[in-house]
Simulated assay, not measured.
Amino acid sequence: MTAPLRAGLIGLGHMGRHHARVLGQLPDVELVAAADPSAEAPGRGSVTVDVVGSVPELLDRGLDLCVVATPTVTHEEIGLQLAEAGVPTLIEKPLAHDSKAAQKLVEAFERNGVVGCVGHIERFNPALRELRRRLAEGQLGEVYQIVTRRQGPFPARIADAGVILDLATHDIDLTRWVAGSLYTSVSARTAHRSGREHEDLVSAVGTLENGVVVTHLVNWLSPLKERITAVTGEKGCLVADTVSADLTFFANGTQTVEWARVASFRGVTEGDVTRYAFPKPEPLVTELSGFVAAVRGTPGDTVTMTEALRTVKVAELLAESASAGRTVEVPAPLPAQRSAMDVAAGVAR
């Protein structure tokens, strides 16, 4: 029988407590301790964990893996310590506060031959996974457009980032993953409406290498909580709601519209609407299970640090575009980087 992996956790805030709960439930993992100098032990349900005050104290426990769920500005320092200690690590998204720091993390984990993953949890939402599967099977035919809407009230947990780095990175990552194609250009506009240093609203458009046009609407100014990804193609539209984990297909109509005036106005006719039934496991359980599999050296579904670095770079270009008031080009990755991203995402080119 394989011994359980000894897991550590750094950060016991909102997301960290969820990681503690799930790590405590995984059958082949033992959560030995968490590091957080300011937190109390996260007793939530049946989850309890020993709390230490620093990363070195946590490393002294002898870890097989670690999850980092701390504010983004701390990811670089903590991640470098774990890489040098040889501890396989999953860092919550975004990977780092800027692309230079993200690049340092990528290089450190590669240099030390250590597994490094990033917690882009939307990839593990069952609605988006089902959507991606159906796209791969050709349900929509040629894909024309991907639209994401991510809006809701201001999250009190955020103090060190604006909506681009905190929220839009979800949409950048999931769009590239769903489409199997990289961004080539982006254009964005932002606004500051809540009196904070960082932007609280962004509206962005972009293009992908495969010609798909993308649109992202992101804010934390709305009383309406919305997490929608809509993919439109030649055969209809698939809409994933990641709050409810529902996926709905709006098919193009096959019935002709005989009333000429209506036909000329409506263009594509409306067909059947289908909401699919499929298994809906908790995304965090799926994500951490894939990370554990990767640590054990078996095939695991993970987001690599190279992919996450690319997401941070695109987020920076959104901010640059908004500041300059113009469209900016997204540099193509080096061949080795492209290969690593494509293999990780299961994309055949």
Rank of each mutant, 00 (worst) to 15 (best):
K104L: 14
E57I: 06
D246I: 06
R261H: 10
D50F: 05
V268S: 13
D98I: 05
D166F: 05
L128Q: 02
R338I: 12
L201T: 08
D272F: 12
V51R: 02
V106C: 14
G79I: 08
E320A: 15
V32S: 01
L26V: 13
T286L: 08
S187A: 14
R296G: 09
F250E: 10
G233P: 00
G290E: 01
L5K: 01
V114R: 01
L140P: 07
L59I: 06
G116V: 04
A251K: 07
T74S: 14
G13A: 10
L135D: 08
F278R: 05
V295N: 10
P281E: 11
V231P: 15
L224V: 15
E258C: 03
S321H: 12
A293H: 01
H192P: 00
A293W: 05
A324Y: 10
V214T: 15
T70K: 01
P37R: 07
T274E: 11
R134F: 01
E107I: 04
A344W: 02
T306P: 03
A188H: 06
R21A: 10
R17Q: 15
L9R: 04
L182P: 00
T232W: 00
L165K: 03
T232F: 01
G11F: 00
A322H: 08
R196K: 13
D36S: 11
A69W: 02
A127N: 02
S323I: 00
T327M: 07
A168P: 03
P4M: 02
A240T: 13
L140S: 12
S203N: 10
T286S: 08
D28C: 05
V51M: 08
P94H: 04
G297H: 02
E226L: 14
G13D: 11
A251Y: 10
L174P: 01
L65M: 10
P37A: 06
A179G: 13
T298E: 15
A34Y: 05
R17D: 03
H14M: 11
A340D: 10
V328Y: 12
L90F: 06
S54K: 09
R296I: 12
E57C: 03
L105N: 12
F109S: 11
G346H: 14
F124S: 05
Q25N: 07
L59K: 00
T302I: 14
F124R: 03
R326Y: 09
V67G: 03
L309A: 13
L208Y: 01
V303N: 01
R266Q: 15
